[in-house]
Every structure is written in C-alpha cells, then in structure tokens.
Design a protein around this nucleic acid. Structure first.
Lengths: 351, 351
DNA sequence: CTGAAAGCGCTTACAG
DNA sequence: CTGAAAGCGCTTACAG
C-alpha cells in the first residue's frame, strides 16, 4: 500500500516547499526549457514571456539548483581557496578580499586549511574536486605532484598565491619574497647594524619563508657580514612564541636589530622588548615583512615591507574567474605584485 | 560530418581525463550500481568485488562527483558559514575552527561575509541555497525575515553563532554577551573607577554588541554611576580607528578607565595611551571583551572576558553536521558557552 | 522565440 | 550480493 516512487519524490519536494523549474514553468505557462533559458540567457526570451516567468519565480520563491545545472555545463559556480591557515592575519586579509571579489562575480568560495601538511592539502583538493570547483588558488609552489596532477587532468584552473618563481609550475599572483627579505635586511644594515638576529618560520613546505630568508641572508653576504648560525632562529607565525623567543635572545645574545619573517613575529618581538625595558629603536631595531593591518598602529610603528595581501586576493579571484570562463588556462601570465619598503619608527641608526 | 552528441560528450570527458563511475565499473567488471554502492556503503559489497573496484578507481584516478550524487540524496556535503567579516580576529579564529572541524566530518565549508548588510546577507544565503548546502551558520539573531524563511522552507539546518537570547528564533551556540559586558565593567568599577569611557561598535544589526553595551551600562546603573552620553562612543572593530578615537578622548575627557566592545578596540586604546605617554594601569585602565589571540601577549597584557571563539566554531560545525544527518532540526538545544573574566595587567585600582 | 526530448553522472528501489 | 532501469533538476542541440 505504498506510494509509487514518483509520487513519493514529488511529495517530498513539495513537502519541502521548494518549487523546481517545472513548477515555475507550469505557473508561467511555458516549458521548463524556456524557464531555464530565462535564467541563463534572458535575452533569448521574449520580453513578456520573461515577465511571466519572473513573476512566477518570485511568487513561488524559486531558487535555482546550480548543482543540477552544473551537470551540463560543468560549472558549479564555486571556487576553492586552499591556505596553510585561516586565522593568521597573513591569510585572513587575503581570504576576505578573495571572497568579496568572488561575490561580485556571483561565485562562492570554498576555503580549507592544511596547516602546512602537503598530504592534507591533497585530500582537500580531492574534496574540492568532488564538488566540481571551477578553479583553485593554492598558496606558494610547494605542493605534492598528486595535487597538481589531479587538477591538471581535470583542466581545473589553478593559481599559486604569494610565491614568486622564475619558472613556476603553476602560474602565480605573488611578490618577490626574496627581494622583500633582502630589502628590510639591507635597510637595517644601512642603519649601521651588524649584530642582527633573524626570526623566520620553518621553511619546510613554505617557499615564501624560504625566499625571504634567503633574501635576508644574501643582504648579509653582500654587505660582507658573517652570518652567525646562532642568530638565525626558527619561529612560527605566532605572537606568543615570537615574544618568548625574542625575550630569550634579548637577554643573552643581545643583537642590536631583529629582522622577522613577518609582521606577526615582529609584534611579538616588540612586546618582548617592552617587557624587558629595551627601547625601540634606541637600543633595538625591529623589522617585519608584510605590512599587516595594525603594523602602522603599534607603538613604535613597524618598519616592514609592504606585500599587499588584499590585492593578491582580488587579482587571484579575478584571474580564476576569467580562466574558468575563457578556458584559457595555459596562457595566463604570472602577475608580479610590487613590494615596497616602509620605514617607520621601529628601526633606527645605530648610535 | 559531425559526431553524434553522445560521442562528443564522451570524448570531451575522456579528453578531460576524468573517468566516471561507468568507466570504473567497466574496468572492475561490475555494474555502475555496484561501484556506487562501494563508495556509499562499502559493507554491502562483497570483499573481493570491493577490492577490484578499489583497484580500478585508484588506477584510473577516479574522483566522485558529489554534485551528481547530491541530486538524489539531497546532500551536497558543503556547509555554509555567513559572517559579517572574515579578516577580523573576532571571526577568523572561529572560521578556522569551524573549517577544521568540518574537514574531520568530510564536509567542506562555504564562507562569505556581508559586512553587516542584511540585504547582502540575504543574497549570500540564496547563493548558498543554490549550491544545496546541507546547513548554515549565521552570526547572531539579527537577520531579515526573508533570510530565515528561505532556509526554513527548504528545511536547511540553521544555527546562530555568538548571540545569546532567552527566546531565540534560531537555535544558537553562543555566550551571554550582556553578562560579559556587565562583568568587565563591574570589575573596573570594583577597582574604584567612576569616570569610565566606553568604546563600542555600532549596534545596528549587531545584537552581540548591543547586548554587551547594555550589560556594561547596567553595571553602571547598578553601581549608581550616572552614565554620561559623551563618554559612550561608537567605534568600529578596527585598531586604527580605536587608536584615533582613544587619543581624542584621552586628551580631552580624560577618563580613568576605558571599557571596549572587544579586544581589537582595546589594542588600539593601549597604543593610544603609549603614544600619549599615559601609563597603564597607573593612570588608565583598559579592558576588552573576547580574549583574542595576542591579548595575553600585548604589554600590558589585556584584562578581558574570555569568549571562546574556537569552541563556538567547533561546536557549531558538529551541531550542523548532526542536524543534517539526523534530520532533527527542531529539537536542537541552545548551547550556552560560559564566559570568564580574565584580569591581567591593563586594569588596576584607582590610586 | 519556444517546446520536446535526450542527457549530465550518479543513486536507489526493485527484482533477482 | 548484484544488475537493469528509472529518476534527481536542470540544460541544450534540434526542430519548428
């Protein structure tokens, strides 16, 4: 005594109160095909037919099912963004810009973080692929081959953020991190410092950090300063940790300047100096990389290299949308974002 | 001389190198139905058949198409998170926790921000609905009726974050913001302060801020302190702005304490005091709400109310997944997250 | 400009 | 435990 399948299904959907294209078509007295056309390419529908469909759709509260549509035209309308971490200022500004720009293109964003674990990154990409994403932005060029291959095989547009590479495997929107590292360090050297400590994150699976560090060390070499291994410290992107590490070196090694892998680390160093009563920049110069929100406001304001996260995010979104619409995946040019040294109050000449 | 449609389609897919369930089935010498079962409910497939399918799928690099699957079982495997802003610490920690927890449940996260614009929020929700999300988390209880209705009609599980309400329209995972506001203010009053300034964000479309502010003012009333309108200032969640506003009031009104709507605002106030050479807490007490990452590290460390963003994010993710799996949308209990006053160095007794 | 029909890649009763 | 077949809600040549 059960309902037939088709009756059950219809009842279920009706029960859910969500009308489909068929119901809208019935109400507007047209075929489902015409309703579909109305939503995808209104121009091909006659104005008064258009009006009827619009009215029916609005009255019934119709919402398109893009998943059903995606089965034909292969476009889900979602674009993926895979980052190491979401809640770190480094990336959250970029994520926000990326998301906002996608919204303007009528796309939604799928984000996930892998916490610098390349294997996790692979499963995230797989999971995004299962959802038929129209494109993906990854951070940097350090990825497992599997990851890149899965995307290439499916011709999903990919773009690498932040990183810079002469000969990249993935087209990028990024800045020359080596140059950024070189510039801040050079600035500190120009101020007369030779006893410089470096706080950089683990460069494993992180080409941005690697480039910055190499750039920094090159500035040292170019200035004929012998770099002391003990002054080259590993420090995560975390204020608490950088503060602790800075307190340790400031009470032992006593460098006259500290160059940090990014602004978050530099903030921690500034706090450490406060607590120890070390005057900045009188007794210690501190420099970061990134120019995050807040770096101009901290006291003393932070000398850093501007690396516009928001621009990277917006440009990446535009580029991916364009790639997916045009199908031109291979002709995409790398987009180099210029960096700029910003000298503020946290660095100064050595007395 | 053109190919038939079916040939073209097949070629196109093959050209893209992405095998479907049919190709996997052929290779494993089973029917597509069995391959489908293997992925959805492996147990019903005989072990050796299972092995053959697994092998075929791996060799061919098969990736499921969840969109196609979602047409039947109505589950896309994606859950939405709609926040006012993404790059503000208030939310980015929560987003990260939400995302990480969803990943454990094999779900992906769609995020978007509406920047406190309820109309934009409606279009975001519509856009999420078009992607057949399995659930949505919104922030607070201030939403347009359209938004709530669209979700209810489609029986999509919804949860409100952060907010607290005796009688909420949407079940929530949140904290008692009024109590949080009351507590910090009370603490400052207990320290002997009566000349207190308040820096709170615009409470329009922001029930969390509204509750906190009301709680703060209630503490004032309870202590028989007359609140002076001129000391109740509106300030966005932005260090630069709060620093500027704080500098202004610290050079004119000269309150002995400033209570802030959240920790970001408080950070700006601390920087303002630095620049003006005002000692904290000797000459000025500063308190925040939230206990963000970094609030324990800033010097002086910030007195605040702990409002665990990460826990809210994780619990919300768990709850939404559970709701969508169980179909129990209406029996969900509100989950109150306890708050805790954390007294640090930025507040002190009035001399 | 519009409709009928086939099809997108899966899932799921139904029948072995 | 497995297969054949119908169907999910749309889109798109094809034919008017």
């Amino acid at each position: 005594m059960r309902d037939t399948v088709s009756t059950m299904k219809r009842r279920q959907r009706t029960g859910k109160g969500a009308p489909g294209i068929v119901e809208v078509a019935a109400r507007a007295q047209v075929s489902p095909a015409t309703v579909s056309r109305f939503f995808n390419n209104p121009k091909v529908v006659r104005p008064d037919t258009r009006k009827r469909i619009q009215a029916a759709a609005t009255e019934m509260g119709y919402i398109r099912d893009r998943m059903a549509g995606a089965m034909h035209n292969r476009f889900s309308g979602s674009i993926g963004l895979v980052v190491p971490t979401i809640d770190n200022t480094i990336f959250s500004e970029m994520i926000a810009a990326f998301s906002n720009r996608l919204l303007e293109h009528d796309r939604t964003m799928l984000v996930a973080s892998h916490n610098y674990d390349p294997t996790l990154e692979v499963s995230i990409i797989r999971s995004l692929l299962e959802r038929r994403i129209d494109g993906v932005a990854l951070v940097g060029q350090d990825h497992m081959d599997t990851a890149v291959d899965m995307l290439r095989i499916r011709s999903v547009p990919v773009i690498a953020l932040w990183g810079y590479d002469e000969n990249p495997r993935i087209p990028f929107v990024g800045a020359n991190n080596a140059l950024a590292g070189y510039r801040v360090t050079r600035h500190v050297i120009d101020d007369g410092h030779t006893n410089i400590a470096f706080l950089f994150p683990d460069t494993h699976n992180n080409d941005r950090a690697r480039d910055r560090k190499n750039g920094a060390l090159k500035a040292l070499t170019d200035a004929n300063i012998v770099s002391d291994k003990s002054k080259l410290l590993t420090c995560p992107y975390d204020v608490t940790e950088s503060k602790a590490i800075a307190k340790r070196i400031l009470t032992s090694d006593k460098p006259s300047a500290i160059v940090c892998g990014n602004d978050v680390i530099a903030h921690g160093v500034i706090y450490a100096a406060y607590e120890l009563g070390i005057h900045i920049p009188g007794a210690l110069s501190v420099a970061g990389i990134g120019d995050f929100k807040g770096s101009a406001d901290i006291v003393p304001s932070l000398t850093t290299v501007r690396l516009p996260a928001k621009r990277i995010g917006s440009i990446a979104a535009d580029t991916l949308v364009h790639m997916s619409e045009s199908g031109e995946h291979d002709t995409v040019k790398n987009q180099v974002i210029e960096t700029e040294l910003i000298v503020r109050q946290s660095t100064g000449k050595l007395a």
